[in-house]
């Protein structure tokens, strides 16, 4: 049993929280080698080497990996796969892009969004927007999976594993990067924030989303949104929480003007404390909220921002 963990790299930096959470899951399957692929990733490799319980870091430093394109990354991982029983990555957009490709190249199934490790072959994962949890046993020789980070604690960073350079597998040029549109923000990342304040269709406009952002900033929180808010152009796509957006489990989740559709709940119902502010007392979000406030958000959110 040996595990290859594909670190999440953003730009040239290690996405520490996602990688450290996936590492906790990976350690239950065997000794872990971490692959850091990107361009100019010496710092990221060093950060990965400091994670607790890592045996070794493989650093693939090449322009081919600079933008997370699936094809060159998959070729790299398949080339390294011999000797590993498990290939694991956090469930990020880039891993969801690459891991199924890797699995198919190895002629094995992929397990998406693993939330529990029962044993080295048996895993839990949600299906039907989290309405059911399935335990599945894999008969494949190599288990390829993405780990739902909201389900695992981050590993510590007191380790010192050796870093070894690994050769690039090149780029066949099937796809090419054109541009990234990534908004820089001082707010905490949605998937690692301790507090998330989310707005839905009830917020009504992009301008009024400033109310949600204002409460978030007062609390040092990340901002989330429902699909309806994103589809309506009130909020950017990367704020979407839910079955097909991001899955979060903060200590505190405040839902404002969100009805609580099952697809939204799928992304936040494991939060420790849920607060719902909605003017409709029948809104399904109240069925999962620890504290529900039936109120107009245009009164309640500014008042809350002021009083905390």
């Amino acid at each position: 049993m040996a595990v290859l963990l594909i670190a999440e790299v953003t730009g040239a930096d290690l996405a520490l929280d996602a990688t450290a959470k996936a590492l906790s899951a990976a350690k239950a399957m065997g000794p872990v080698t971490v692959l850091v692929a990107g361009a100019g990733i010496a710092g990221a490799a060093a950060a990965a080497a400091a994670l607790d319980g890592v045996t070794k870091v493989l650093a693939a430093d090449d322009a081919a990996y600079a933008h997370g394109l699936a094809e060159p990354l998959a070729d790299l991982v398949v080339g390294l796969a011999g000797g590993f029983s498990h290939i694991v990555a956090p469930s990020t957009a880039s891993a969801k892009n690459a891991l199924p490709r890797i699995a198919a190249l190895l002629d094995v199934m992929v397990l998406s969004d693993v939330t529990g490790v029962v044993d080295a072959d048996t895993f839990e994962r949600p299906i039907y927007a989290g309405n059911a949890i399935q335990t599945v046993k894999s008969s494949d020789p190599v288990k390829v999976m993405t780990i739902r980070t909201a389900s695992f604690e981050a590993a510590g960073a007191d380790g010192s594993a050796p870093v070894e350079a690994t050769a690039s597998a090149g780029d066949k040029g099937l796809s090419a990067w054109v541009e990234d549109k990534v908004a820089a923000s001082d707010r905490p990342e949605l998937t690692s924030a301790k507090i998330v304040v989310s707005g839905g269709r009830g917020v009504g406009s992009e301008a009024d989303f400033a109310l949600i952002a204002g409460l978030a900033d007062k609390l040092g929180a990340a901002v989330g949104a429902s699909r309806a808010a994103v589809d309506s152009g009130f909020a950017p796509n990367d704020w979407q929480v839910g079955q097909t957006g991001k899955v979060v489990a903060p200590d505190l989740y405040i839902a404002c003007g969100i009805s609580g559709a099952i697809q939204h709940l799928a992304g936040m119902k494991d939060s420790k404390i849920i607060v719902a502010i909605n003017k409709d007392e029948e809104a399904p979000i109240f069925q999962v909220a620890d504290y529900g406030l039936v109120a107009d958000l245009f009164d309640a959110v500014p008042a809350l921002t002021q009083k905390i």
Binding site: D180, K181, K246
Partner: peptide, 16 residues
């Protein structure tokens, strides 16, 4: 493409 940090544009040769 909708990615974690926002949007990414790529160009992919056909067939794809």
């Amino acid at each position: 493409r909708e990615v974690d940090g926002g949007l990414q544009t790529i160009s992919v040769a056909l067939p794809a």
